[in-house]
Design a protein around this nucleic acid. Structure first.
Lengths: 166, 166
DNA sequence: TGATACTGTAAGGATGCCTGTCAAAATATT
DNA sequence: AATATTTTGACAGGCATCCTTACAGTATCA
């Protein structure tokens, strides 16, 4: 009987903290949108609000910024066009592309959302203190980059071993 | 023409930072699990690893801790039982409940995962400094609670208004 | 004992994102 | 100029995740 002992974690895994916070934030944004009179808002729309530049963007660029595929982003965008938040028109500078912009109604929706985000920023800063809140933001903003680097390094090591073996 | 001006955000929304970090962490955990010889691991399993206590837990409790419904947690648990990571047996102290525990194989999987988590904790602490990393953890651990409180307060205000009007 | 609350589960649906594929347009290569 | 490659948005099909609604069994308490 080779019973494996589970190492006792002295504290909750970081991933659990991030995941829990993320679920709460996603829910909060949609719920607030609904309360503000925009019942058409869905969680997936957050990816657009976070990546669509004020003067318009291409779907492909937005997909890269959001970290999802072009197809997925395109689907979300078409959905938001259908409910009147976004508009698409051919990009005059590139016949293949279409320029995604907010509709007039979409600008109102986005403005309401940004107002709520600003409110949250202030509440968080007040709750945790400007300094600690900024620290948390700084840490979070670098997590993805670090993980991708470390993962790539491990990939390199594995393929190097494969290369020697093969 | 009442054109709505979009407020320019001075920095990325907090929700965008958390979402991006979360995606990266979820991907990293699953990828690492696969590399360590556990190809059966899926992203949804993280919710279990993060909430199942070493001596066993009830599904309902785990659902609350993970921030998802009992039904969803139950589905994930049954999936992990099917692939041999978890075991379920009746709770001797409560005829309604079942006690979820790791199987022997599951303990090995979890041990590998926890080892990776510990490695990440150390890398993060080294990268950001113990103090800043702890600060980020502390901030994140309170986000859900705060949002739920604020949301409840807003609900109260709305229903109070409804009450007066009705 | 009966009302109420909590357990896990089932069924069905909505959502979000994926892979594979395509045509059209732009760009690079020959 | 002709061809090959890349890039664009779109469509089809599918899987994973989580939800809502509903239910039967058990516990708890008036």
């Amino acid at each position: 009987m080779s019973r494996v002992d589970l190492p006792r974690l002295d504290r909750k895994p970081f991933i659990a903290l991030v995941d829990r916070a993320n679920r709460a934030l996603q829910t909060d944004m949609v719920q607030t949108g609904h309360r503000r009179g925009h019942p058409e808002l869905k969680p997936a729309h957050n990816a657009v609000f976070g990546t669509l530049l004020p003067d318009g963007s291409r779907a492909a660029d937005m997909a890269v910024r959001a970290g999802i595929t072009r197809q997925s982003m395109g689907e979300v965008i078409r959905d938001m066009v259908a409910v009147g938040i976004l508009e698409m028109r051919p990009d005059p500078e590139d016949g293949r592309a279409k320029l995604v912009t907010y509709s007039e109604h979409g600008r109102q929706v986005a403005a309401d959302g940004y107002a709520h985000l600003k409110d949250l920023e202030e509440r968080f800063a007040e709750e945790f203190g400007e300094e600690d809140y900024d620290t948390a933001r700084r840490v979070l903003s670098r997590i993805a980059e670090l993980l991708e680097r470390w993962s790539a390094e491990e990939d390199d090591q594995l393929s190097a071993v494969d290369g020697e073996a093969g």
